[in-house]
Nucleic acid binder design. Structure first.
Lengths: 110, 110
DNA sequence: TCCTCATTTCGATAATCATGGAAACATCAA
DNA sequence: TTGATGTTTCCATGATTATCGAAATGAGGA
């Protein structure tokens, strides 16, 4: 869990992650993330690998591009951990992290 | 928020914070935290100041001791931020972070 | 094959973080 | 005041992180 915390504990990585959350399952190509964040390509790789190692994002290839996408299940687990371990009172997590509906005709519910 | 994430993104600091969550409002003295974590006093100060700067813990003096306690409101805000910004779907936070009932006859409900 | 585009790996550099010992500071009790 | 205890500040050291340019890798297209 420290890995996930550390992964998000940086301005650029948190921004990258939020970008991916907004984008949902279609994800965003590495180059575009770098451009939007104003980072050199190699720096983006450095940061996004921290997110990848923490399991917070997934990676897939689409022809020449490498597409990254937020892993909503991992975020649920992450928040669940915080609620269970860093709140008193035996608090129960009820965080319905789920991808936004970018396009209603894209079925991706299972 | 990056400050809070970074504050928790270290083995020793996360352990210290969890200790304070368990202890609740009575809190724990600096020396005892250091002892339980197996840290030099100066190292503990270094770490706990990160938590303090992030607003996750409070500090008070009790005679010679300096007592640290978890700030549950801050943790609620922190988790609220994560849910709102790092989950898709406009998820709503419902995290009831509250101190554990260590002693039922200690009134501390506001 | 050769060229181009997209991304990652490598290397160097500067900055920040983590650690604990020693000294200083604060509080209380004789 | 002196002494004991608890905590923080200061300092030096080693480790890790963040950055980007240059070179290498991978994947298409002509």
């Amino acid at each position: 869990m420290v890995t996930a915390l550390a992964a998000l504990a940086h301005e650029h990585r948190l921004a990258a992650y939020r970008l991916l959350v907004e984008a949902g399952p279609p994800g965003v190509a590495a180059g575009e993330i770098a451009a939007r964040l104003g980072l050199a390509a190699s720096s983006l790789t450095f940061h996004i690998q921290a997110l990848l190692r923490a399991g917070l994002v997934t990676q897939r290839r689409a022809s020449r591009h490498v597409i990254y996408a937020a892993d909503f299940t991992a975020m649920n687990d992450f928040i669940g951990f915080l609620v269970q371990n860093c709140c008193g009172q035996g608090a129960v997590a009820c965080t319905p992290c789920a991808p936004p509906q970018t396009n209603l005709n894209q079925a991706q519910s299972a």
